[in-house]
Design a protein around this nucleic acid. Structure first.
Length: 862
RNA sequence: GGGCGUUUAGCUCAGUUGGGAGAGCGCUUCCCUUACAAGGAAGAGGUCGGGGGAUCGAAACCCUCAACGCCCACCA
């Protein structure tokens, strides 16, 4: 073995062994209970970022542990066609050649996207493998593959037949750059400073008018009314009157509507039904006309009269200037307001009246809300359930049609008479009138429509496959809080509707990966760290361990390369600990499981008992998905107990003929079980070491540790405390750690037996002489419970240092005593505190009192 | 405007039935002891955001204030 841990070498080969051995397939454990999770499908043309790395590491830690625990564990991998995002990429390529997708034509364009996908699509899955993730690649799926397309079509048709999916004119959010409709959730709102323009609309009859306020003066071209609140006394007498729309000349009514907030602006609002959702609603209630004054490129239409042809922003300026010229602008004031941007390209979206396909989500949402309320699904951490409820209870219908080409084409056909035929199989004629002149809907479905089916479509639905029967519902779903609404909520709705069961039992929410300063990682701020680069430089295992050690449910994960360097140092420590063990035992001799010593020596029993406790605690924490705590516990145990103490003690035990055999056995099983416990987090390194220690089978397919209970011997803690105390004395005295010293040991409770004296003399570098009584003057004392060590002061040069050492100890003991006595002198405490607490305080008082006497005597003797 | 979260050592964070403040990194000192200097040993460092309250006892429970962060909302 190399003297140092080289992640790159270690990580070069194991993945293919695991895959070839079929360990990542649930069939590996034919009799195991099923356990299933589906990957949040990444964009097929994307590349791995740190958020993926965190999400995947959590997945893998869970799945690998479940597999080792004997479950038939299945992690379904796959990717998403990411309609708008992918289409944008290919369109940019075309644009470089001066072409648009319309120049190329639909079929050729789609073929070009497929080509792009075949060229780049393998990249992210390659990166997922590189990070060691144990997905079952034989079950890999793609949202646009044949099976999933069948599922999408089935769902579309059934929802349509059930009346839960319809085509209609609604205000949708339109991205003029992507040239498609968006769902509400696909719009990102940001506060921006705008101008609130107050415009006076004159009455058609008589003097005066009514003043309205708007941040978008250009939309006045499409106004068809002004609305006031019905209870607003200022305007009560005006309701029913008419106004002449400036610049346009259209006669528009004043209507009364509850939706108007009398407090805002002037309390009178201009109504532009075709370009504002509220206005659209008002118009519906009052039978107002909706006039589209912007087209799909956000350019003013012919309805805009002399402003026709102007871009929406140019139109804003032009209309504003014209209004000023006409003298109808009362005032303009600065006004912060929130502006919607396209989540794919950041262009300002345009609310737009448009004929689109919608899913009626409220009916689907009800069971999805109930499922969480009654515990069929729970969120971890549970506080996210509140957000989920609030979201689900306030849904607007989901616009699912997109005016792009890359995606599932909507299975609806129109005949010249306007009949709609929706069918699972492409029809030859109109289902209503039989006309053969039918044409298919041009639009495709929202990418999230297919993602919503992922937990069952990937398992073969609508066919009743064995996988579907075995692995639906999935057990868990792991994702960031940022896509709860995009994805989790929709999977819940679709899963319950079509499978009549929740798609997964638990929804595990993790945080965002942030940089070392706690800032969000983003391309624009240039603080992103590429996980593949990190894996190349530090290793995938160290990165995984660094991520998982910070990943408690719902918590953001700050990442500093310095911490990855730290986990790599841990890897090196583990590597060398194993190297040491292999110098003591026969390589490849430890059994894959069992093999615990029947009669362990005292130190063996101690470390085995601790191993059992730590493994139990680890399991408890891991079952709650508290991986930061779980691996923190394990990490500290491995380093500070096994490596720093047990291995050092073992060096002594190995020299003892009575203890050597059991020590070797213990070294072997403790090492092996540590490898098992660490394996889900650092699979490559542990597998490599397993090959040296166990040498048969693969760790990835091994059983989870089942550690029998051991009882640690009395005196272990005192022994360690005594050793530390002697080391502290030496450091305080400025003595060399190498300098041998005599040590008289008083051990009235016989805590230390022969082996322990050897340990003491080796680890503390002292010549041990057991004594039956406290030696005469001229010693300093190190106390560890009832165990006392006496170091002759002869030869200790620095008397002042020893005085200082003692006085510090006396000071600390006095402070402790004061605190304890303050409690015990409080009658209220004695009366009201539980008996056990009082007893504990009394014992403490006695113990500190003894210590203090000892220290004071010693101080006096100097 | 609503809702949620955070505030503990220089940094990042634990502290889950209220009973002697912890870890990792960083820092200081000593040590290249044949597994490991990517190491070992020892140590310094905190009025647990402020204020108030119930309690014998609060980092933890209640109230309040403050700062920071996130989500939602039809801010014309």
């Amino acid at each position: 073995m190399n003297p140092t841990y080289e992640p790159k070498e270690v990580e070069a080969h194991w993945y293919e062994y695991w895959e070839k051995a079929g360990i990542f397939r649930p069939e590996y454990r034919p009799d195991g209970q099923p356990f299933c999770v589906v990957i949040p499908p990444p964009n097929v043309t994307g590349s791995l970022h740190m958020g993926h790395a965190l999400n995947l590491t959590i997945h893998d830690v869970i799945v690998r542990r479940k597999r080792m625990q004997g479950y038939a564990a299945l992690w379904v991998p796959g990717s998403d066609h990411a309609g708008i995002a992918t289409q944008n990429v290919v369109e940019r390529e075309l644009a470089a050649e001066g072409l648009t997708r319309h120049d190329v034509g639909r079929e050729a364009f789609i073929e070009q996207v497929w080509m792009w996908q075949r060229r780049h699509g393998g990249r992210i899955t390659e990166q997922i493998r590189r990070m060691g993730n144990s997905c079952d690649w034989t079950r890999e799926r793609f949202t646009l593959d044949e099976g999933l397309s069948v599922a999408v079509r089935e769902v579309f048709v059934r929802l349509y037949e059930e009346g839960l999916l319809y085509r209609g004119d609604r205000i949708i959010n339109w991205c003029p750059r992507c040239a498609t409709a968006l769902a509400e959730i696909e719009v990102e709102y940001r506060d921006e400073m705008g101008a609130l323009t107050y415009i006076s609309y004159p009455f058609t009859e008589g003097e005066g008018g009514i003043t309205v306020a708007t941040t978008r003066p250009e939309t006045m071209l499409g106004d068809t009314a002004v609305a006031v609140h019905p209870d607003d006394e200022r305007y009560a007498h005006m309701v029913g009157k008419t106004l002449r729309l400036p610049l346009v000349g259209r006669i528009i009514p004043i209507v009364a509507d509850e939706a108007v907030d009398p407090e805002f602006g002037t309390g009178a609002v201009k109504v532009t039904p075709a370009h504002d959702p509220n206005d659209f609603d008002i118009a519906q209630r009052h039978g107002l006309e909706a006039i589209k004054i912007l087209d799909e490129d956000a350019v003013v239409t012919a309805e805009g009269g002399r402003f026709a042809g102007l871009d929406r922003f140019a139109a804003r300026t032009a209309v504003s200037e014209a209004l000023h010229a006409e003298g109808v602008v009362v005032k303009v004031e600065e006004h912060p307001h929130s502006v919607g941007h396209c989540y794919r390209c950041d262009t300002i979206v345009e609310p737009f009246l448009s004929l689109q396909w919608f899913v009626s989500v409220l009916e689907l949402a009800r069971p999805a809300i109930n499922a969480v309320k009654n515990g069929d699904n729970s969120f971890v951490p549970s506080r996210w359930e509140k957000n989920y409820f609030h979201w689900m209870e306030n849904l607007r219908d989901w616009c699912v049609s997109r005016q792009i080409w890359w995606g599932h084409r909507i299975p609806a056909w129109y005949c010249p008479d306007g009949h709609i035929t929706v069918a699972k199989v492409d029809p030859d004629s109109c289902a209503t009138c039989g006309s053969e002149e039918i044409s298919q809907e041009e639009d495709v479905l929202d990418t999230w429509f297919s993602s919503a089916l992922w937990p069952f479509s990937t398992l073969g639905w609508p066919d009743e496959t064995p996988d579907l029967a075995k692995f639906y519902p999935n057990d868990i779903l792991i994702t960031g809080f940022d896509i709860i609404f995009f994805w989790v909520a929709r999977m819940m709705k679709m899963g319950l509707h079509f499978m009549d069961a929740v798609p997964f039992r638990e929804t595990i929410i993790h945080g965002l990966v942030r940089d070392a300063a706690g800032s969000k990682m983003s391309k624009s701020s240039g603080n992103t760290i590429d996980p593949v680069d990190v894996a190349d430089e530090y290793g995938a295992d160290p990165l995984r361990l660094a991520l998982i050690q910070a990943a408690n449910p719902g918590q953001d994960v700050p990442l500093d390369l310095e911490w990855v360097a730290g986990t790599r140092r841990f890897g090196n420590k583990l590597w060398n600990a194993v190297r040491f063990v292999l110098m003591q035992i026969e390589p490849r001799s430890v059994p894959p499981s069992g093999g615990y010593p029947a009669n362990p020596g005292p130190a063996d029993a101690w470390i085995l008992s601790r191993l059992g406790e730590v493994a139990a605690r680890f399991d408890e924490l891991a079952d709650q998905y508290r991986f930061s705590d779980a691996y923190g516990t394990l990490y500290n145990f491995a380093w500070s107990e096994v490596f720093d103490w047990y291995l050092e003690i073992a060096k002594v035990s190995l020299a003892d003929p009575d203890l050597a055999a059991t020590t070797r056995k213990t070294l072997g099983v403790v090492t092996r079980d540590l490898l098992k416990l660490f394996h889900p987090a650092i699979p490559y390194l542990t597998e490599e070491l397993w090959a040296e220690v166990v040498g048969q089978d693969l760790l990835a397919g091994a059983d989870w540790p089942d550690i029998p209970s051991f009882v640690g011997p009395a005196g272990m803690g005192e022994l360690q405390e005594l050793i530390s105390g002697i080391r502290r004395f030496r450091a305080d005295q400025g003595l060399s750690p190498r300098q041998e010293m005599p040590l008289r040991v008083l051990d009235p409770d016989s805590l230390l037996v022969g082996w322990a004296h050897e340990v003491l003399s080796n680890l503390a570098r002292v010549d041990v002489e057991p004594v039956d009584a406290e030696p005469a003057h001229g010693h300093t004392r190190v106390v560890a419970g009832t165990l006392q060590g006496f170091i002759p002061l002869e030869g200790v040069i620095d008397l002042d240092a020893e005085v200082a050492r003692l006085e510090k100890a006396i000071g600390e003991a006095e402070a402790d005593l004061r605190r304890v006595e303050a409690k015990l002198n409080n009658p209220q405490f004695l009366e009201k505190a539980p008996g056990a607490v009082v007893t504990k305080e009394r014992a403490k008082q006695a113990e500190i009192g003894d210590l203090l006497d000892t220290l004071r005597n010693q101080r006096g003797a100097l």
